[in-house]
């Protein structure tokens, strides 16, 4: 009998090697702890910190590119995120739209490279940093509607839930695991439901009453936390992501 056992072992080993690089590793903990991805080489080393980073409070002219950014709203460039499933990459037109009016940095190597693409009318072949498997349909629009529009939270904070502190990076690098367990860890938490005021207008939170505060077929069980606030879990249906 033992001679047959080698075949399952071979097969199991094979499947492990192919299906997963780390079947023997520890399972990642289901938290939002950082899980730094590899540094990805991009065609242009786009400085996120310069565009989205916090202003330098000492040098208000903001002239030193190594210190301080311009606090540009993420959604100014990533304009598709609030309108579509995919965040998209800004069209080249968008970069040039501003940069053709900023002569001071025109001769910097990265900008020279940018205009090379523009003059050739060629798209920049960026590398995907957050690449989910094809069977996952993550919806950017819904998360932005929920957290930014309904709850009025700061844009950089909301984007940062998944993308990390991009405002401190040059080219983006993955900071969160973005695995299913990690997604679910947030959806399983009891979030405080904020009741709308008497006019039905949400006071910085998810409205009750006119609009459902859950997004699934079934209304979740309503619970109260220690402070006596009504809480509910995020949507937890398989089909939300696995269509």
């Amino acid at each position: 009998m033992h001679r047959y056992l080698c075949f399952p072992a071979i097969l199991a080993g094979f499947l492990m090697a192919v299906g997963c690089y780390a079947a023997t590793d520890q399972q990642p903990t289901l938290t939002t702890e950082d899980d730094l991805g590899p540094q990805v080489q991009q065609p242009i080393e786009f400085p996120h910190y310069r565009h989205a980073g916090n202003r330098n409070t000492v040098d208000l002219t903001n002239s030193d590119p190594t210190k301080g950014g311009m606090e540009i709203n993420c959604q100014y460039c990533h304009t598709y995120a609030r309108r579509s499933l995919t965040a998209g990459i800004p069209p080249l037109q968008k970069c040039v739209g501003c940069h053709q009016n900023i002569p001071s940095v025109r001769d910097k190597p990265r900008i020279v490279e940018l205009f090379k693409y523009w003059d050739a009318k060629k798209a920049i072949p960026w590398k995907k940093v957050h690449d989910l498997p094809d069977f996952v349909r993550f919806n950017h629009e819904r998360h932005i509607k929920r957290f930014i529009e309904q709850q009025g939270r700061p844009v950089q904070e909301v984007c940062g839930y998944c993308h990390g502190q991009v405002k401190e990076m040059t080219t983006a690098r993955r900071q969160k695991p973005i695995t299913m367990g990690w997604c679910v860890s947030c959806h399983m938490k009891e979030h405080v439901v904020v009741v709308a005021n008497k006019d039905g207008i949400p006071e910085g939170g998810t409205p009750l009453g006119k609009q459902a505060y859950w997004y699934t077929f079934q209304k979740p069980a309503e619970t109260k936390n220690a402070a006596g606030e009504l809480t509910a879990k995020g949507p937890n249906d398989c089909w939300l992501c696995h269509k």
């Binding site: 079947a23 080489q41 990459i89 080249l92 957050h130």
Partner: peptide
Amino acid sequence: GNTSIEDGKETVVSYVE
């Protein structure tokens, strides 16, 4: 739970205009 997203493997091409 252990599947990782693929960082930097695929190209994502944006529009020029």
